[in-house]
Design a protein around this nucleic acid. Structure first.
Lengths: 136, 136
DNA sequence: ACGATTTACTTGATTCTTGAAAGGATTGTG
DNA sequence: CACAATCCTTTCAAGAATCAAGTAAATCGT
């Protein structure tokens, strides 16, 4: 993991579909074979986990973005997890945290109505504090 | 934006470097040209914003992951923003939120020592509540 | 300090992918 | 029904990736 590797990662974060030829040029390697084998190594080591796309969630129909601090007294979190499984469409991340609350749940919704419906059902399993994202 | 487009997006989220030929086969289009032109359209419409990689932040040297609820009485948030600019290495997201606090700040650190150093300086500008991620 | 070994890079040949162009099928419209 | 528009398929040429071989540089043990 030298400086060239770090440059490669930066370039691929900006453009994950970059041609190996161009990537090589940008990090000062001649030909695509050298760049290609470094990328392969980064994949094998698990430093590059996967290739993906950034999607415009607003244009995809999920403009409402929020974080929920989940609070529960119950020792059994399974019903909460089971509930999340049924709402995969909305759930983006569920972080187990220390601090206030047990989980930080990141969600996306088509509208406030759908958010409200979600909250009503969520409240059967846990308590929460809601933070709505105004600007990313 | 029909069902094929949604399938394409799902496939590219899983593998952003997929060959157009394979993508075509997976969504039941013959040849790469049809898949390619649909992807081009999704890019032009801004639904696909960019191609990127998922990086293992732990292996990159940033194992400590936390969220900070930022609280400030001051009307001037500029010093806070200026501070964040100098700490880009650690900052992953800064969401403006409604609810408790003004911002939800997502950060990554090499160690708790660096986190502590960050908090000391942060505290000169704003108050915060800290949540450390135990499991992603 | 020396040669041996490993690692990383370059080069060139072959195979594969992409992009462009042309033609065909389907749908909607007057 | 004819026409236009849209989307898909096919084909082919240009460009990129993969593989193998050769070279240079760094590392290791003595």
């Amino acid at each position: 993991m030298d400086n060239t590797d770090r440059m490669i990662i930066k370039e691929l974060q900006d453009n994950g579909r970059m041609k190996m030829k161009e990537l090589g040029e940008r990090v000062h390697l001649t030909g695509q074979a050298a760049a290609s084998s470094r990328v392969q190594k980064l994949e094998d080591e698990g430093i590059i986990e996967s290739y993906t796309i950034r999607v415009n969630e607003k244009k995809m129909g999920y403009p409402v973005h929020c974080f929920l601090t989940i609070i529960t007294d119950s020792l059994h979190h399974q019903p909460y997890f089971a509930f999340l499984e049924t709402k995969q469409e909305y759930v983006r991340n569920n972080y187990k945290i220390s601090g206030e609350g047990c989980y930080l749940l990141e969600c996306r919704f088509p509208s406030n109505e759908e958010l409200d419906g979600f909250l009503v059902q969520l409240n059967k399993h846990v308590s929460y504090k809601l933070s709505i994202v105004i600007r990313e």
